[in-house]
Amino acid sequence: MLEVRNLSVNYYVDEGTVNAVAGVTFNLKEGEILGILGESGSGKSTLGFALLRLVDRPGEIVSGEIILNGLDILLMPERELRRVRGAQIAMVFQDPFTALNPVLTIGEQIMEPIVLHQGVKRGEARAKAAEALRAVKIDPARIDDYPHQFSGGMRQRVVIAMALACRPKILIADEPTTALDVTIQAEILALLREIKNQFNLSIIYITHNFGIIRQLCDRVVVMHRGAIVEEGKTHLVFDQPKEPYTKKLVDCLRELG
């Protein structure tokens, strides 16, 4: 479905070059939830952004291929890239408090990609936005409300609705529950599982949280210092870790209880 080969991202900072993603290769299969597990600073978020070429300066994608439907995203001209963003691959971000524009209504923000990618009139886009809100269990009557009128959990639902608005095939979720408290986390995870089936999605789920990977993901990729150290079916990686780094991680988890 999506094939990533030898992807590298560097950050050019004053102290020198940081190789945040170092020659990463993996693939996402249709209909699966692939977990990307790593501690803070392992390069997992940068990897997520790189998949849509959203790495900001001083970061830069230096090599690799990201193949979607036989085309390399990294070689696409800007115009073509924009037709992938939001339409074929969408993203859910870490912090719902900063991911929504405070001066635009949520309806406007959800309608934007619909108008852009599907070329429909605003009235129709509004109906589709209402439908997207219903899919994430938010009252469509609130379509004209502003982000600050929602709680954190509800904002993350809005962000998910925005991502789903154009019925993408692939969803990249970058720690979408980290900023939320535990009960809300569970709700968002349940919602993700539900929409995955409903919308026939393939999901890349980026997190540092073992528990979530275990509950949610079919396969897992373990990242450490920008590289993939282990990859496999979730239960195999957890029950019989092969690499020393993964073993240490799993031991830590057992000790914690």
Binding site: R82, A90, L116, M162
Partner: peptide
């Protein structure tokens, strides 16, 4: 970044 991720 979110706005860019939408393809705007």
């Amino acid at each position: 970044r979110v706005a860019r991720a939408k393809g705007l």
